[in-house]
Nucleic acid binder design. Sequence first.
DNA 1: TGCCCAACAGGACATTTGTCAAAGATCTGA
DNA 2: TCAGATCTTTGACAAATGTCCTGTTGGGCA
Lengths: 191, 191
Amino acid sequence: MNAHPLRKQIEEIVKLTDEEFDFVLEHFQKKAFKKHQIVLHEGDYAPFDFFVVKGLMRVSRLDSDGKEHILQFGMENWWITDAEAFHHKTKSTLMVDCLEDTQTLSLTLENKEKLSRALPKMQTFFFKKTTNGYIALQKRILCFLSSNANDRYHNLLTLYPGLIQRVPKAMIASYLGVTRETLSRLTKIEA
Amino acid sequence: MNAHPLRKQIEEIVKLTDEEFDFVLEHFQKKAFKKHQIVLHEGDYAPFDFFVVKGLMRVSRLDSDGKEHILQFGMENWWITDAEAFHHKTKSTLMVDCLEDTQTLSLTLENKEKLSRALPKMQTFFFKKTTNGYIALQKRILCFLSSNANDRYHNLLTLYPGLIQRVPKAMIASYLGVTRETLSRLTKIEA
DNA sequence: TGCCCAACAGGACATTTGTCAAAGATCTGA
DNA sequence: TCAGATCTTTGACAAATGTCCTGTTGGGCA
């Protein structure tokens, strides 16, 4: 059997009947985007949290010097949005766009809360996902505190081996907090 | 009326009756620690999430070179623990200790879950706190991506103005991911 | 097909930050 | 109160990283 990717992810945490999963799915909207399409502009509200079914998105911010900083990539089975704008219903300070043609399941905050109330198992799921996300961010911060650019790069390689094949190195550099020139020099040493 | 600090924090998110708050409190244990006391050793399990009533704690890690990296400070009304060890019931890779004599309200994972089941409002509270924590960590990462040591320092000053009075500068440096010499040079320029 | 642009590598130099060593300053407990 | 411990500052130098630039490559699109 070929389970739905969202169902597979949910069932790593809580088990669902077929009826329950259908009910869950009713709260999502299918949305597809083209490569380079901007899904959320800075300054807009963030009506959706996106579950990536297929494709690749990113969250980034432009600083005052016009430099781009990548906060997060979202490959298949990742959730991606501007968390602050989404949860606080404020205007976004970040941008979400697509690095590939992308299909998503999109969830509004209202439907997320409705779903959590109707199906406590889903509240558990969302809570554990958020907790795990928190832990992952802590690890990324520890990486900034204790590692130089080279170590951060190799940490990223082992953490998300598929990513580097799909993303220009300049963006990897931006995610790591270094310039593309610095990253280029690091990878040179390997050879 | 002089509300309990924990109650005050909870009621910023959900309202409680006196009975409900008493019920909440029953799930916590009062624990007090001395300055310099290690509350959680690396390698130990993390049985508690601590709500700091009075005092100051920190979470840190020693890297392989023996250098100390501070992941988080916990002043009054902060929650502090090794999140990964606490939630996953694994052995801690971090250390929690006290920078001042500290009084806490300590919560086990079992009691946290019990409380969440018994009082859905508390589940909402914990969920929102975790979400806000996630957002705060994202901001700290963006700060690492886009700011140099000087900007990160001033960001910290405006974010937690009280902290610098209570913490040695070497620890501030460690939290910012720079050496104490670098931080010392930054603050010199001010004058 | 051929052109163009994004991506990448590399050099030369500037700036930031780290390292090591030492000297002051401040705190703290007996 | 004093003496040791801790914390902070400072200087000289090294290493890491950023900036600006140029040239090459290779793939996508008219």
